[in-house]
């Protein structure tokens, strides 16, 4: 238990350092870039300027602003005001978008894991058959076609040609389905490949051959003996997979017009809304860190040989 606590504390420490680094770099950039809140030439709408002046004392020397802004984040979780969206604080924008993006991401990941693992297992067990080749070919497709192209084609097929799903909007399960599938497919493809490779390696292990020789039914052997070993690389892939899903959501939210964090982030980027962009980068960093930590923990639990650093 002590070690676990130690591990978590160390991780938190690293996250704090990383966030601080990101924050500092952002602040420097914000000061350097003209037209942004903390720099000398301010071309902000007066309403925003008023609010920021009240919070961060814009006439103060740079170091003071640095501290104030950081303190604002640490003590109140206050990420300042959006520059382009008047009357909206960054916190509000993030709070609005987060549930949407989070549920989209979760749906996509769950879908990807279920589809990917099943496909991988079937491919491995029926290795060399038509099913295997077909699945792996589709998997390569999933990796080579950018997901926004996939999404567009999907819209073409399933919204216009065969009206199965609505084109945009958010709220019902139907509306989540298509974006989640499009987001999850490339990840599913990669997971399928990983699972297949892991299964093949696991199937050739001695203890599996013994299990088969004992006469255990095929399904039992696969699920109890082969699968656990094969899934390890998939578990460790979940970290990058989350990053991929978060990234992909940027594009898909644009295509499907979903009011999530991603579309706001793109908006912030194209509109040069620096405070909003900063706030979002920090949020995404935290998300990713948390996910990676969970993955590392899961990995250590599954494989007793692994040491937590």
């Amino acid at each position: 238990m002590k070690d676990l606590l130690g591990f978590l504390i160390r991780r938190l420490g690293w996250m704090a350092i990383t966030l601080w680094a990101v924050y500092t770099v952002s602040f420097v950039l914000m000061r350097a870039a003209p037209g942004s809140p903390f720099s000398a030439e301010r071309a902000m709408p007066p309403a925003i300027e008023q609010q920021m002046r009240a919070r961060y004392n814009l006439d103060a020397p740079p170091l003071q602003q640095y501290w104030d802004y950081m303190w604002g984040i640490l003590s109140r979780g206050d990420l300042s005001w959006s520059i382009k969206l008047e009357d909206y604080s960054v916190n509000q924008v993030i709070a609005e978008g987060f549930p949407v993006s989070a549920s989209l991401a979760i749906f996509a990941l769950v879908f990807a894991i279920i589809l990917g693992v099943s496909a991988g297992v079937i491919s491995a067990v029926y290795r060399g058959t038509v099913a295997d080749v077909a699945m792996m070919a589709t998997a390569v497709l999933g990796i080579a076609i950018p997901n926004f192209v996939l999404a567009s084609i999907a819209i073409l097929l399933f919204v216009f040609l065969i009206p199965l799903f609505p084109a945009a909007g958010w709220g019902t399960l139907r509306q989540v389905a298509l974006p989640a599938i499009c987001l999850g497919l490339p990840v599913a493809a990669y997971i399928a490949r990983l699972t297949r490779a892991g299964m093949l390696e696991s199937l050739s292990r001695e203890h599996v051959r013994t299990a088969f020789a004992k006469g255990l039914p095929k399904r039992t052997v696969i699920i109890k003996h082969v699968l656990p070993g094969a899934l390890l690389p998939v578990v460790s892939y979940l970290g990058p997979a989350t990053a991929g899903v978060l990234t992909g959501s940027l594009v898909l939210e644009k295509i499907f017009a979903l009011p999530g964090m991603g579309s706001h982030f793109i908006y912030a980027a194209t509109q040069r809304d620096t405070t909003l962009a900063t706030g979002m980068v920090l949020t995404y960093t935290v998300l990713l860190f948390v996910m990676n930590t969970i993955v590392d923990l899961a990995y250590a639990v599954i494989d007793p040989r692994v040491e937590l650093e």
Binding site: D3, L4, F7, A300, P304, E307
Partner: peptide
Amino acid sequence: FRRGSLFNP
């Protein structure tokens, strides 16, 4: 050396 599981180093 150091070894042992997460919960028992």
